[in-house]
Design a protein around this nucleic acid. Structure first.
Length: 748
DNA sequence: GACCTGCTGCGGCCTG
C-alpha cells in the first residue's frame, strides 16, 4: 500500500487524477483520501471499470500485498453504495468466498472499516462465527456476505427455503486465493456452488477472482467460468515486485549415523545457523512436514535453553490445536515479542501475520507457486527486501553412496525452482479432473435442496449447464445407478430421485459439507490443555516419549474410547509419525533440473558448500553418462531416468508394470527389479512403436484407485475414468517413450 | 519421505 500518515476530516479528495478514482462512489473516494493514499495501485486502476460495468468476469492477478482485495472491493462497494441509496434491492448484494476462516476474520475488520460509512452491512459466516450473525443473514439478508465453501454448502442444504431470498439480488461473487481452489475437489465444489447461486438468482452473476500465484491465466479463467474461459478479463499487474535477497545454503549429512540420542550433524548445523541468524526477529521457517517442524522447533528450543535466552521458536502445523496456533499467530503479529514460527504450509497463505523479517525453507520447496507464496510473507514493508534462505542437506560422498544420491537431486530441484520463480513460472493448474467424488456430493446436496429431482434436472444443472461438463450422460447415468445401489438415492414411481437411507444419513451429518476427507484423530492433552491431535491409525502406548508442539513429553495414558492421549513434560522425546501423501513435481521442474545439470553456470546465490554440491552433482551426472543415456544397470536392478514430471513418471510406471516388470518409483528414477537394461530398452522401444493406449483401459490395470471422500460409492468403471483423468498423462508418457527409444543402448 | 482446508443443531449449564 502506498500510504503516508492518515488524514482526518472530509475535505475534497486529493488523490492523483485517475480514471478508476473518478469511477468510485464519493464515499469510497473519501475513504481513500482518509487513508492518505497518494495513488491507486496498478491492479486497482485497471480493474475498476471492468468490475463496475459487470459485463465480464475478472481475474486480478498481482503480487502479495499489492492491494488486490481493494482492487475488487472499492468498485464493488461503489456499485453497492449507489444501489443502497436507491434502496433498490433486498438480499445479499456481494458474496465473498474464502478458503480459510482466519482469512474471513482478517478481512472482516478491514471491510467493515470501508463499508460502514457507506451504510452497507457485512456478515461473516463460517463454523466459528457467531450463530446470531447467521440468523440475521437468513432473516434480513443484505450487504456483503463473507463465507467458506463449506458454510455455503450448509446454507443450501439446511436453509433451502431461504436460498432464493438470500441470493435473489446478488450483484457480485468474489473468490479469494483462487489458486488454492483450481484443480481440486474443493474447487469443483466451489464451481458447483457458484453455479447453484446463479440458478437461485435466476441470472449470471459476475465473478471476481483474486490470486498472486497463477501459473496459467487461461486455465484459471476456464476454472472461474467453465466453458467461457476466453471471455474472462485478466488484470495481471505489471507493477514491479520488490527486491528479493536469496541464498541457498548447502549442508552435508555424514555417512556415519549419529549415535542414539544425538542430533544428526547436518540438522544440527542447520539449526545452529537458524538460531544464530533468526533469534530476536520475526521469521517463518517452512520445514515441509509436520514431523520435521517438530524436530526443528525442538532443536531450536534446546538451543535457546542452552544459551539462556527466552524461547522464541514455536511450532505451527495443522495437527496443533487452535489455541496453540493462535498463540503463535498473536506473537507474530505483536512487534514487541520477536518470534520465529517453524511451520508447514499452514502459514503459507492468507492469515495476516504482518511482515516477517525473513523466510527460511528447509529442504527443497514442494512447488514453485508455494515457494512464491512463502516468499511473499516477507518484504511487505516499503523499502525492505524479501529475504529467503533455502537449506539443503545432501549425503556425504563416501564409498557405497548410490549413484542417484550422488546427483544431489534436492539441491538441483531447489535451484531449478528458484530459477523458475525468478522467471515468474508457476505450476499450471490441472483442470482435467472429473471430480466424481464431489459430483456425488453435489447430486445429494441438490436433491436435498429441492426435495427431489429427476435425473434430467440433475444432469442439466450440474453437468450440461454446470461445472461438471466433462461428465457425459452415460457416465452420469452410471453414477446415479451406483448411488442407487448404495442406497444414497432412491427413485419414486414418477421417476423423481430422493435421498435414500444412506443418503439421508450422510446429508444429515455436518461432516457432509466438506468435499475432502479427514481422519479420526486422538486428542493430545497435557495438564488439561489440548495441544493438538494425532491420527488414530498410529497407536501409541503409555510410557512412549514424544516431541509435540516443539516440547518433549511422556505418554501417561491412552483412552481409546474417548480418543484422548494424556501427556506429561519429559526430558526426552521423538517426533510422532504422521501419515500422508505429498504433491506432484511438475514436468517443467524436472526439465529445468536436467538443463541445470547440463549447464556449467553457477548461480550467485549459492554458498560455498552448495557450490561444491552443485559441482559434485554435475560431475556425477556426466560420470554416470546421464548426458547421453537414460537406462542404467545397478546391481540386480535396471534404472530408468526419464527426467519428466511425476504424472508422466506414474504413467510410465503403470505401463511398464503392465508388461510384467517389477516396477518401483524413486523420485527421479523408475526401477525395474527383474530385467536387464537391454530387456528394459526392448520393452521401451516396443511400446514407443505401438499406438498410445486408452487411458481408461490403462487405469483398469491399477489397483486401489479410491482416493477422494465419496469414491467408495463408485463402481470400478467410474474409478477408472476418474483415475485416468487424475493420475495419468498418456500422451506425455508416449513422447517420453519415443525419446527414450531413440537413445543409444544402455550404459553400465 | 512428503500439506492444507471445513462443518449444524441442540441440550445443558451458568450468569445477569
Amino acid at each position: 500500500m502506498t500510504t503516508s500518515s492518515p488524514r482526518s476530516g472530509s475535505e475534497p479528495p486529493a488523490a492523483e487524477p485517475s480514471r478508476a478514482y473518478a469511477l468510485y462512489h464519493p464515499a469510497v473516494q473519501r475513504w481513500i483520501y482518509n487513508r492518505g493514499w497518494d495513488r491507486l495501485r496498478d491492479a486497482q486502476e485497471r480493474a475498476a471499470e471492468l468490475i463496475i460495468t459487470g459485463e465480464r468476469d475478472v481475474i486480478i492477478a498481482s503480487a502479495t500485498a499489492s492491494g488486490k482485495t481493494e482492487a475488487a472491493l472499492l468498485p464493488i462497494c461503489s456499485v453497492l453504495a449507489r444501489q443502497h441509496e436507491l434502496n433498490a434491492a433486498a438480499g445479499v448484494a456481494a458474496l465473498y468466498v474464502s478458503p480459510l476462516k482466519a482469512l474471513i476474520n482478517d478481512q472482516y475488520d478491514r471491510i467493515v472499516d470501508l463499508t460502514e460509512p457507506l451504510g452497507l452491512r457485512v456478515h461473516r459466516w463460517h463454523g466459528d462465527a457467531p450463530a446470531a450473525g447467521k440468523a440475521r443473514v437468513l432473516r434480513a439478508p443484505s450487504g456483503l456476505l463473507l463465507i467458506t465453501p463449506e458454510s455455503l454448502e450448509a446454507l443450501f442444504v439446511r436453509h433451502a427455503d431461504r436460498v432464493r431470498r438470500v441470493f435473489g439480488g446478488l450483484r457480485y461473487a468474489v473468490i479469494d486465493e483462487l489458486h488454492s481452489f483450481v484443480g481440486t475437489e474443493r474447487g469443483a465444489q466451489l464451481q458447483a456452488l457458484l453455479h447453484r447461486v446463479e440458478l437461485a438468482a435466476g441470472r449470471r452473476v459476475p465473478r471476481v477472482a483474486l490470486s498472486a500465484t497463477l501459473g496459467d491465466f487461461a486455465g484459471a479463467a476456464e476454472f472461474l467460468r467453465p466453458r467461457h474461459g476466453p471471455e474472462v478479463a485478466v488484470v495481471a499487474s505489471t507493477e514491479p515486485g520488490g527486491e528479493i535477497r536469496l541464498q541457498i545454503r548447502g549442508y552435508v549429512d555424514p555417512a556415519a549415523p549419529a549415535p542414539p540420542g544425538q542430533e544428526p550433524a547436518d540438522r544440527g548445523a542447520i539449526a545452529d545457523h537458524l538460531f544464530r541468524t533468526l533469534r530476536g526477529t520475526d521469521n517463518l521457517v517452512f520445514a515441509n512436514s509436520r514431523a520435521a517442524v517438530e524436530v526443528y522447533a525442538d532443536m531450536l528450543a534446546q538451543r535457546a535453553v542452552r544459551a539462556g535466552v527466552p524461547a522464541g521458536f514455536l511450532a505451527h502445523h495443522g495437527s496443533l490445536s487452535k489455541e496453540v496456533r493462535e498463540h503463535v499467530e498473536e506473537r507474530l503479529k505483536d512487534p514487541t515479542t520477536p518470534v520465529t514460527a517453524v511451520c508447514t504450509s499452514t502459514l503459507e497463505l492468507g492469515i495476516d501475520v504482518g511482515s516477517v523479517d525473513s523466510v527460511a525453507q528447509v529442504g527443497a520447496p514442494p512447488t514453485v507457486a508455494g515457494l512464491r507464496q512463502r516468499l511473499g510473507r516477507s518484504g511487505r514493508r516499503p523499502g525492505r527486501p524479501a529475504v529467503l534462505r533455502v537449506y539443503v542437506a545432501e549425503p556425504e560422498l563416501a564409498p557405497g553412496l548410490s549413484p542417484t544420491d550422488a546427483l544431489r537431486a534436492e539441491l538441483f530441484q531447489s535451484v531449478a525452482m528458484i530459477e523458475l520463480l525468478t522467471a515468474s513460472w508457476y505450476e499450471p493448474p490441472d483442470t482435467t479432473g472429473l471430480h466424481l467424488s464431489t459430483l456425488v456430493q453435489q447430486v445429494l446436496s441438490t436433491t436435498a435442496q429441492h426435495g427431489g429431482a429427476t435425473a434430467r434436472q440433475l444432469f442439466d444443472s450440474l453437468c450440461a449447464s454446470g461445472p461438471f461438463h466433462r461428465v457425459d450422460q452415460a457416465t452420469f447415468a452410471a453414477l446415479l445407478r451406483d448411488l442407487g445401489r448404495h442406497d444414497l438415492l432412491q427413485q419414486q414411481a414418477d421417476g423423481v430421485l430422493l435421498p435414500g437411507r444412506e443418503g439421508e444419513r450422510l446429508i444429515s451429518h455436518y461432516s457432509f459439507y466438506a468435499s475432502f476427507r479427514t481422519s479420526l484423530d486422538y486428542r493430545l492433552v497435557a495438564d488439561g490443555y489440548t495441544l493438538g491431535s494425532l491420527p488414530v491409525d498410529r497407536p501409541i502406548l503409555p510410557g512412549t516419549f514424544l516431541i509435540f508442539s516443539g516440547a518433549r513429553w511422556r505418554v501417561i495414558s491412552v483412552d481409546t474410547a474417548q480418543r484422548v492421549i494424556e501427556l506429561t513434560a519429559a526430558e526426552a522425546g521423538r517426533p510422532p509419525v504422521f501419515p500422508g501423501t505429498g504433491g506432484e513435481v511438475a514436468d517443467e521442474v524436472r526439465r529445468a533440473m536436467r538443463r541445470l545439470y547440463r549447464s556449467s553456470e553457477t548461480p550467485g546465490y549459492l554458498d560455498a558448500t552448495a557450490r561444491t554440491l552443485l559441482a559434485e552433482g554435475r560431475a556425477a551426472f556426466h560420470a554416470y553418462g546421464h548426458a547421453t543415456h537414460r537406462v542404467f544397470s545397478r546391481g540386480p536392478e535396471t534404472v530408468l531416468f526419464p527426467w519428466r514430471g511425476d504424472r508422466i513418471m506414474n504413467t510410465l510406471a503403470v505401463v511398464l508394470a503392465g508388461h510384467g516388470l517389477h516396477i518401483g518409483q524413486d523420485g527421479l528414477a523408475i526401477t525395474a527389479g527383474n530385467c536387464s537394461p537391454a530387456q528394459l530398452l526392448d520393452v521401451v522401444r516396443k511400446l514407443a512403436a505401438e499406438p498410445a493406449p486408452d487411458p481408461v483401459a490403462l487405469a483398469a490395470t491399477v489397483r486401489a484407485k479410491a482416493h477422494d471422500k465419496y469414491d467408495r460409492y463408485l463402481s470400478e468403471d467410474l474409478l477408472n475414468l476418474a483415475y485416468a483423468a487424475r493420475a495419468l498423462d498418456v500422451p506425455g508418457a508416449w513422447t517420453s517413450l519415443a525419446e527414450l527409444a531413440s537413445l543409444p543402448s544402455p550404459a553400465g
